[in-house]
Design a protein around this nucleic acid. Structure first.
Lengths: 302, 302
DNA sequence: CACGATTTATAAGCAGATCTTCTGAATTCA
DNA sequence: TGAATTCAGAAGATCTGCTTATAAATCGTG
C-alpha cells in the first residue's frame, strides 16, 4: 500500500491537535474519512501511530518518530512549491539579455529600471556584444534573449519584432534642416558627425551616401551616440543616427528629422531560442521592453 | 490545486528518463495518465517544468530547480517509511523490562539472549527493582513492561499471566527428601538455607512455617538463589525456592521436589500500562519471554 | 517531397477510491 | 446512572484517476 501526502497531512493534524474530530474540522472533512486516512497510513507503515481510546489520542513511540520525519518532509515540500510559485509570480528569476552596445545603452537601462521597480526579485543581466556574437549566445542558451537588428532568419531562433527603427538626421535647433524632412542629397558638403566604423549604423550611412552618390567625409568620428549628440548640440555638425538615439539624451537641445530618399529602416527584433519555454520573468520583460522600444521609435509595427 | 506524491513521482520519472513514454512504462501506467499528472503538477506550481515537443523533452530552469527539491523530499520520505517498517519488522526497537532481582537473574538472561540472536536491532534493557517500584515504573511509563508476582489488580495496568510458580524444596541427590513430594512438616529441625528477608520468597516461606506450626531457624541466609543452590549442593542443608530457581544453575547436582500441605503457588505475571499500544518489538519479547518462563515452570496456566 | 514511424496531447468511458451521512460502541463526567 | 463526547464501522454517492482510442506534430528516409 502506498503512502500519500493526504495521509500524512491527516496524521500530522491529528498528532498536533490530539483529536480526530478537531483535526477533521481543520482539514474540512468528515471525521470518519480522517480516521480512514490514518488507518491506511498505519497499515502502510506497519506500526500503530496513535494509542486511541474514545477519550484520549496520543502518539506512540513510532508515531512520534514518524511525526518528526514527516513534518520536515511536508515543510520541505511547501518550500519547494513556494519557490516554484515565486518563479511563476515574478518574485524571483534571472534573465540575461544580449544587445549591441549602442542599443544597450539607449534602451535597456530604462526597461531594466522598470523591471527592478515592479519585480525586485527578478535579476536582469546585460551582455553587450556584436550582433553575430549575440546570435551565437542565444543559440547556445548562454543568454535568454537578444535585442538588435538581425538580418537573416536563423534556424532554431525565434524572432519577435518589437519596433521599426529608421535613420534620422540629428541637428541643432537653429540649423537649416530644422523645419522639415530631409533628403540625403541635402547633406552634401555638410559637416557630418559619424560613429566609428565598427558600428552597424556607420555602415548604413555609408551605403546611403553611396546610393545617392555623394562623398562621405566625416568631420568627427565618435564611438558613443551620446558623444555624437553632444557635438551636434555644440553646432559642430549634423549626425545620422537611428531613431532610438533620442533616448540617449532626451534633455539635449537637438532636433531629429526624418531622412528620406531613401528612407532607411530596420526592424528592432527580440530573438530567443525556439522550442524553449518562456519563463514568466522573461515574458514580462518582453512586454516591458517592447513598451520602451516603441516609446523611442514612433513607427510602430506588428 | 494540491500537489500529490504521485505527480512528483511522475515528474521525477520523466525528468530522469527524458521521455514520457519510457517513464510511463517504468511507472506501469499508460502514457496519457502520466502526461496528465505532469500537467497537473505544472498547474499547481504555476510554471512549465518541461520544454516538450513530440521529439524532445527537457527540463526548464524551474523544472531543474524543482527536481532537486522534490528528489530530496521523496528520498526523505522513503527513509521515514523504511524506519517505520524497521520498527514493524523488529529490525529496530527498544524495550525496558523491570523485574525483581531474583527473577531477573533466573529468567531474563536467556530470553534476552534469544532476542539478541533473532532480532539484533532490538535493544532490551533490564531494570531490577522491588515489586512496588516495578508497578510504579510501569504506571509512569518508565519501563515498557514488568515481570513478577503482583498481588492486586492495579488500575491502568494490564496483567498477562505467564506461568504458575510454586515453592519447591531443593535438596542434594542423596537427601532423604529425594524420592517423593515433600510435606512442609517434614522440614522440622532440618537445616534450612533461606534467602535474606528482603526477598518476597523468604516471606512466603515464613508464612508457610507459621501455618504448619513449626519454627523457622535459618541455618544460612543468602541473597542470591545461586548461592543458596551452591550450599544445597554442598549438603549444608535444604532450601525452599520457587520453581524457576532451577534455571539459576541447571548444571548443579541438586534435586527439586514439590512442597505440599500447603502447596504455595503464585502467578508469574507480565504487567504493562493498559491503553497503550504494544510495540511490535514488545509483542515479540512477550512471546519469547513466555516460552522461557514456561520452560522453567512446568505448571502451565492460561 | 511525401510518407511512415515515433512521441506527446486530447477525448471519452469506466472502475475504483474517497468522502459524507448515519449509526454504534466506549469512555468520561456530572 | 445517564448524558455527552469521541472514535470506528457501514452504506451509498460522487469524483478522481486510469485506460483505450485517436489526433497532432515532428523527424527521418526513400
Amino acid at each position: 500500500m502506498a503512502v500519500t501526502l493526504r495521509q500524512i497531512q491527516a496524521f500530522l493534524a491529528v498528532a498536533e491537535l490530539g483529536t480526530f474530530t478537531k483535526a477533521a474540522e481543520r482539514l474540512h472533512m468528515a471525521q470518519p474519512a480522517l480516521s480512514q486516512l490514518v488507518r491506511e497510513l498505519e497499515q502502510a507503515l506497519g506500526i500503530r501511530l496513535f494509542d486511541r481510546t474514545t477519550r484520549r489520542v496520543e502518539l506512540t513511540e513510532g508515531g512520534r518518530e514518524f511525526q518528526g520525519a514527516s513534518a520536515k518532509i511536508v515543510h520541505d515540500l511547501d518550500l519547494a512549491i513556494q519557490n516554484a510559485n515565486d518563479l511563476a509570480e515574478r518574485r524571483r528569476g534571472k534573465i540575461t539579455v544580449a544587445a549591441p552596445p549602442l542599443l544597450a545603452a539607449a534602451i535597456l537601462p530604462e526597461a531594466i529600471a522598470e523591471m527592478r521597480e515592479r519585480f525586485p526579485g527578478v535579476q536582469v543581466a546585460v551582455l553587450d556584444a556584436r550582433t553575430d556574437t549575440i546570435v551565437e549566445a542565444v543559440r547556445t542558451n548562454r543568454v535568454d534573449c537578444g535585442l538588435g537588428t538581425f538580418a537573416a532568419i536563423e534556424d532554431g531562433i525565434e524572432r519577435i519584432p518589437m519596433a521599426r527603427d529608421q535613420l534620422m538626421l540629428f541637428c541643432s535647433p537653429g540649423s537649416r534642416f530644422a523645419d522639415a524632412d530631409v533628403d540625403w542629397r541635402e547633406l552634401q558638403s555638410e559637416p557630418l558627425i559619424t560613429l566609428t566604423r565598427d558600428s552597424g549604423i556607420r555602415l548604413l550611412v555609408e551605403v546611403a551616401y553611396e546610393t545617392v552618390g555623394i562623398p562621405l567625409v566625416p568631420a568627427y568620428e565618435v564611438a558613443q551616440i551620446t558623444t555624437a549628440l553632444a557635438l551636434v548640440e555644440a553646432r559642430l555638425g549634423v549626425a545620422v543616427l537611428p531613431t532610438y538615439a533620442r533616448a540617449a539624451a532626451p534633455h539635449r537641445r537637438v532636433l531629429a528629422r526624418l531622412l528620406a530618399n531613401p528612407a532607411i529602416a530596420r526592424d528592432i527584433v527580440l530573438i530567443r531560442p525556439s522550442g524553449r519555454s518562456v519563463s514568466p520573468a522573461l515574458a514580462t520583460f518582453e512586454t516591458v521592453l517592447r513598451r520602451h522600444v516603441r516609446r523611442l521609435t514612433p513607427a510602430d509595427i506588428d
